Amino acid sequence: KMTIRVKGKELARRIAKEMKDRNLKVEIHEHGDEVILEIE
């Protein structure tokens, strides 16, 4: 399990899509400006 902190929703969406393309499970937690992606 891996956690990534990202500034900006646009970048977070791009990373999430990339991870889904690799068949990984992604959970997205938004905290205002910061987005936390949990990847399994």
Rank of each mutant, 00 (worst) to 15 (best):
K1F: 09
K1L: 07
K1I: 11
K1H: 10
K1P: 08
K1M: 09
M2E: 04
M2D: 03
M2C: 15
T3V: 14
T3Q: 08
T3P: 02
T3H: 07
T3A: 04
T3W: 14
T3F: 14
I4P: 00
I4R: 01
I4G: 01
I4A: 01
I4N: 02
R5P: 03
R5K: 11
R5L: 10
R5W: 09
R5I: 12
R5C: 14
V6Y: 03
V6P: 00
V6D: 02
V6L: 08
V6Q: 01
K7H: 13
K7N: 09
K7C: 09
K7L: 12
G8M: 05
G8D: 15
G8H: 09
G8Y: 10
G8I: 07
G8T: 13
G8K: 06
G8F: 08
K9T: 10
K9H: 11
K9S: 08
K9Q: 10
K9W: 15
K9C: 13
K9N: 07
K9Y: 11
K9A: 10
E10I: 05
E10R: 09
E10A: 10
L11E: 11
L11K: 07
L11W: 04
L11G: 02
L11S: 04
L11P: 03
A12H: 01
A12L: 03
A12Q: 00
A12N: 00
R13Y: 15
R13M: 15
R14T: 06
R14P: 01
R14H: 09
I15S: 01
I15L: 11
I15P: 01
I15Y: 03
I15R: 02
I15H: 01
A16L: 12
A16C: 12
A16V: 12
A16S: 04
A16Q: 04
K17P: 00
K17Y: 04
K17R: 10
K17L: 08
E18S: 12
E18N: 10
E18G: 08
E18V: 13
E18A: 15
E18D: 08
M19G: 01
M19N: 02
M19T: 01
M19W: 08
M19R: 01
M19L: 14
K20S: 12
K20C: 14
K20W: 09
D21W: 06
D21I: 08
R22E: 03
R22T: 03
R22M: 11
R22L: 10
R22C: 14
N23G: 15
N23Q: 08
N23L: 07
N23K: 09
N23W: 06
N23F: 09
N23P: 00
L24R: 04
L24H: 06
L24V: 07
K25E: 06
K25H: 12
K25L: 09
K25D: 04
K25Y: 09
K25N: 10
V26Y: 05
E27C: 15
E27N: 12
I28G: 02
I28V: 10
I28Q: 04
I28E: 03
H29M: 10
H29P: 01
H29K: 11
H29N: 04
E30R: 06
E30H: 11
E30K: 05
H31A: 11
H31T: 10
H31P: 02
H31R: 11
H31V: 13
G32A: 07
G32I: 04
G32S: 04
G32P: 05
G32F: 07
G32M: 05
G32T: 03
G32N: 08
D33S: 07
E34R: 05
E34L: 13
E34C: 14
E34T: 12
V35Q: 04
V35L: 11
V35K: 01
V35A: 04
V35G: 02
V35H: 05
I36N: 02
I36K: 03
I36P: 01
I36R: 04
I36D: 03
L37E: 00
L37N: 00
L37F: 06
L37K: 00
L37C: 01
E38I: 15
E38S: 11
E38P: 00
E38G: 03
E38N: 07
I39G: 00
I39H: 01
I39R: 00
I39W: 10
E40S: 15
E40V: 12
E40P: 03
E40Q: 13
E40R: 11
E40C: 08
E40G: 11
